[in-house]
């Protein structure tokens, strides 16, 4: 009798660092989509899974991921299929390099499911500053020394910017709130059949954040509990906070576990706290 060998959808051994937040994000994503027909798109970065998954995976460049996926998606719709087109990329790709093309795809309302794992710097190339790097954080291009003390500018609120395109679905997720994360993946999958869906997921990088790998989930939880990374969703511009934090903790709860923030002065922490509060106030106004 011939044994039928079951090929796993994703390789059990992926070459990512121990405690990689992105690996958990990608694995949960694939696990949640396993019963659907889907095509994966990957760009340069740690999450290029072309040779590690058994679903069709298309490798693109940074800038042309959204346009390539749009073309594939349109051809599939023309054939009458509702295949999910899944684009995976980091914060450097979607908030900096490919933001223009991503915004264009959102404006056209392409049937895509775009997932951005946000590790808050260009980690694959060796920890360079991105527009998602928080204020004051150390990176190799915002060093700590006599002439520079970490990044000077605020984070780009790019998930809010995408939600302002009035697309079908935009949500922020944290792997620590796993049920909420899985629910949002399912919602985004359904929304991608009627329009553009975008998930912004916090994914700690122990190598780049200079923290211990075992506290990866704790960092995600602290980011939500300090309102540093509030969890919300938006359907066609109607905002809604999904995880309400009753008593938000001070932002130091999030920064104290990471060596990239170890140099922060009290003034910088006060500034960071102020910006976190302001951003959350702004979000609350949007939620009505």
């Amino acid at each position: 009798m011939e044994m039928e060998q079951k090929i796993p959808m994703m390789s059990p051994g992926l070459p990512m660092c121990a405690g990689c937040g992105m690996e958990l994000v990608v694995r949960v994503l694939y696990d949640e989509l396993k019963n659907d027909e889907f095509i994966s798109f990957g760009g340069p970065g740690c999450a290029l899974l072309t040779t590690k998954v058994s679903v069709p995976c298309y490798g693109t460049l940074f800038t042309n991921m959204a346009p390539s996926a749009s073309g594939v998606s349109r051809e599939l719709r023309r054939q009458g299929k509702d295949t999910v087109c899944l684009c995976i990329g980091g914060d450097g790709m979607f908030s900096d390099i490919a933001f223009g093309n991503l915004s264009a795809a959102a404006e056209r309302g392409e049937h895509l499911l775009v997932v951005c794992y946000d590790n808050e710097a260009y980690m694959n190339t060796g920890i360079q500053r991105s527009s998602r790097t928080p204020e004051g954080a150390w990176t190799n291009t915002t060093p700590v020394g006599p002439r520079s003390i970490g990044k000077k500018k605020q984070q780009k609120p790019f998930s809010l910017l995408l939600a302002e395109h009035n697309v079908a679905y935009v949500a922020t997720c944290s792997p620590a709130h796993m049920q909420d994360f899985r629910k949002k993946i399912r919602a985004a999958r359904d929304a991608s059949r009627e329009g553009f869906a975008f998930l912004h997921v916090l994914a700690p990088c122990p190598t780049g954040w200079k923290s211990k790998p075992e506290i990866m989930i704790r960092q995600c939880r602290d980011a939500v509990n300090t309102n540093y990374f509030p969890l919300w969703e938006s359907r066609y511009g109607a905002y809604h906070i999904t995880v309400n934090v009753k008593e938000p903790k001070p932002v130091t709860e999030f920064t104290k576990t990471q060596k990239r923030f170890s140099h922060l002065s009290e003034e910088q922490i006060r500034q960071l706290q102020e910006d976190v509060d302001l951003n959350f106030e702004h979000l609350k106004k949007l939620c009505g």
């Binding site: 059990p12 051994g13 992926l14 990512m16 660092c17 121990a18 405690g19 990689c20 937040g21 690996e23 958990l24 694995r27 949960v28 696990d31 792997p175 620590a176 796993m178 122990p206 211990k212 790998p213 075992e214 506290i215 990866m216 989930i217 704790r218």
Partner: peptide, 30 residues
């Protein structure tokens, strides 16, 4: 929360890691 998702439920109901792929990050213990 296992980033490698290598912890599975055994027949006895306990969850054990597949040491062929476990990278030893320590998230499960934490």
């Amino acid at each position: 929360y296992c980033p490698i998702q290598c912890i599975r439920k055994g027949e006895d109901g306990y969850f054990r890691a597949d040491l062929d792929y476990c990278k030893g990050c320590g998230v499960c213990a934490y």
